[in-house]
Design a protein around this nucleic acid. Structure first.
Lengths: 152, 152
DNA sequence: CCTAACAGTTAGGCAACCTAAATATCAAGC
DNA sequence: GCTTGATATTTAGGTTGCCTAACTGTTAGG
């Protein structure tokens, strides 16, 4: 039947998609393992760059619970890459602000990682790069769906 | 200059690609967190299904070191999902074989995860699904490049 | 034989996540 | 102007999955 065929195609695509996800996790591990700033720390520090990030907001954006964000923030603070300040409007809250060193660290971390990936992308054909570029927004959409659906 | 423009485009694509990778890691965590079989265990168990998998081969396929594979295998063995047997050809080696329960567990785990992803994919337009399907082989190629390049 | 390479396990450690509980502040109702 | 429930964060303690180093046993080449 038509619906079953459609379902099968969808399931097959889902299977391939999952395989790509699995590989991505592996690639991320490799990519980050030799860097001075871990992925978790880079993510948190990036949000501190805006200057008005609070711990809870960082946790939400990173997709982790608040204590996990606190943990990364403490590490970054000890490394001198950001500072925690009292929020003038709400003394329960803590504002997280990157230091100049933190800003430099983010720039370096991003640049190195981007150059590394760009090196790989450069070996592809233009058609392949186009295929990737076309799919990225859809990936984003999928990821957001999954994110919202899994929200407690 | 032309090369600089090309480089810039490549770097921009790399940046978006990295963002997608980051999200993928997050999505995988959500996807696996409510499942009885973890991603690491499902991966190892799948290879045991073929029947002729050895610990080193599983580690290589999972992209982890041998002790990490051993760890997952021991957990799976304790759960009754696979068995370790002496390799008749090489007594240093251990052959890892899934039990019937293990086979069922893989089928269930795969089916549930696939259905979950398929549910999301079903909300996309056909054009979007085509874009994903077109990009997956390229992702695979990229991931393999990164994998080989990062090999020690 | 003997020695180097190989397959696997064990031991110990680290990063990043989690939940539960403690602390402090805010804000709403009476 | 208190009390009480909600909110923001930290602390404490635990889990998972990965790693390296060191150990045991087996194989194979010279």
């Amino acid at each position: 039947m038509n619906t079953n065929q459609a379902d099968d195609a969808l399931l097959a695509l889902a299977q391939s998609f999952r395989e790509a996800l699995r590989q991505s996790v592996y690639v991320m591990r490799r990519l980050d393992s030799e860097e001075p700033l871990s992925a978790a720390q880079l993510g948190a520090l990036k949000m501190a760059l805006d200057g008005d990030a609070r711990v809870g907001g960082i946790a939400r954006n990173l997709g982790v619970k608040v204590p996990s964000a606190t943990e990364q923030i403490i590490k970054l603070e000890r490394a001198g890459l950001l500072q925690r300040e009292a929020d003038p409007d709400d003394s329960r809250a803590v504002r997280v602000v990157a230091t100049p060193e933190g800003r430099v660290a983010v720039e370096n971390a991003d640049r190195r990682r981007n150059e590394y990936i760009a090196g790989i992308l450069g070996t592809l054909s233009q058609a392949e790069r186009d295929a990737v570029a076309a799919a990225l927004p859809v990936f984003d959409k999928i990821n957001n769906s999954l994110q919202n659906q899994a929200r407690n």
